[in-house]
Simulated scan of single mutants.
Amino acid sequence: MARTRLLFACLALAAPLVPATAQAAPLPASGLVLSVRPEMGTLSTTQLTCEPAGGLHKNAKAACDGLTPVDGDFTKMERAADAACTMELNTTKATLKGKWRGKKVVFEQVFSNPCEMRVHTGKVFDF
């Protein structure tokens, strides 16, 4: 009986020293190249990494927060309900290429103007 108590006492003291093996596996890397090409304007490009948010994108955290619920597909993002844009015609192409959680992604969508693009994509293409 004394041996059993001694064994349990040793195990209790040693438990904090054993590294946890049931940790969640890290998500595969998400590295994206984003570009915006307005018909009347210049091409803009940046890099975005998510999980953790970073890269050259000036709003990296907000952009990643917008892409996460749609699994990296900005074409599935919902239009901001309270936003309004002018009727300006300046077709603008938004492109996203790279890897999202280890899977190759390529998405592209054309909007009637830069304002409409921002309304539909939040901070993703605000760089």
Rank of each mutant, 00 (worst) to 15 (best):
Q47D: 12
G54S: 04
S35Y: 01
R79A: 12
V33R: 08
A53I: 02
T45F: 00
L17V: 09
L48A: 08
R79P: 08
G66L: 00
E51Q: 10
V36W: 03
T95K: 04
F74H: 10
A25T: 15
M77N: 06
L34Q: 03
L96G: 07
K97Y: 02
A20G: 01
A81I: 11
E88M: 12
P28K: 00
N90E: 14
L27W: 13
L32W: 04
G54M: 01
K97R: 13
L32A: 02
A62N: 11
D73W: 02
A29W: 02
P26L: 01
P38T: 04
E88P: 11
A29S: 10
D82S: 08
A53V: 03
C64A: 05
K76G: 09
G41R: 04
L89N: 09
T86C: 05
D65M: 03
S35V: 01
A94Q: 12
T21I: 03
R37S: 11
E51M: 02
P69R: 09
L56Y: 00
Q23G: 06
N90A: 08
G72A: 07
A29T: 13
A81T: 15
V33L: 00
A62E: 15
A24K: 07
L67V: 14
P19C: 03
D73E: 12
T75V: 11
A94D: 14
P26G: 03
G54E: 08
Q23H: 04
T92S: 09
A29Q: 12
A29D: 13
T86H: 08
R37E: 14
A83N: 11
P52G: 05
E88F: 04
K76T: 11
F74Y: 15
L17G: 13
G66C: 03
S35H: 01
A25E: 15
S35D: 07
K76N: 14
L48D: 13
L34P: 05
T95L: 00
K93Y: 06
A84K: 14
L17N: 09
A81G: 10
K76A: 13
L56G: 08
A53F: 02
N59S: 01
A22H: 08
K76C: 04
K76V: 07
T45N: 04
P52S: 05
T45Q: 13
G31P: 08
E39K: 02
P19Y: 06
L67H: 13
T95W: 00
D73C: 01
A29P: 08
G66H: 11
G31L: 09
T68R: 10
L27K: 15
L48V: 09
T21N: 06
C64I: 07
V36T: 15
T68N: 10
N90L: 06
A62T: 10
F74V: 12
G66N: 13
A60T: 08
T95C: 00
A63W: 08
A22T: 11
L34Y: 02
L96E: 15
N59W: 00
C50Y: 05
T42V: 07
L32R: 02
